[in-house]
């Protein structure tokens, strides 16, 4: 399954909205079959902050582990945010180019 993150907006900043996005995504996530990967596509994202991402990507990583795959992005904020989340959570994201 592929998720276009921009469906939640293109400027993803606040914790509040990150947490809301995670809850809103749960019904869709239940459609993910066993062993199926969830790919996150950052295309169209203008700014991603660690606060928003910590409420959305961190719990997804906890739920899915290596079934969560992030598609490579050249956006500087996406890059910086993923780096700090990995450091804070001491867990590595699976990133696909």
């Amino acid at each position: 399954m592929k998720l276009q993150l921009e469906k939640f907006g293109t400027t993803l900043i606040s914790r509040e909205l990150g947490s809301e996005a995670f809850r809103a995504f749960q019904p869709t996530l239940r459609e993910l079959s066993k062993d199926e990967e969830l790919e996150i596509d950052f295309t169209g994202i203008l700014t991603l902050s660690p606060s928003w991402a910590d409420e959305f990507l961190t719990p997804l990583l906890d739920q899915l582990n290596d079934k969560l795959v992030l598609l490579l992005s050249d956006n500087l904020s996406v890059h910086a945010t993923l780096k700090i989340l990995q450091e804070a959570n001491k867990k590595i994201f699976k990133i696909k180019s």
């Binding site: 400027t11 900043i13 606040s14 700014t47 660690p50 904020s77």
Partner: peptide, 13 residues
Amino acid sequence: YSLIVLVAGEIGD
């Protein structure tokens, strides 16, 4: 731009 918005966004949030 995205790093500047990130910095301002985090401080404000």
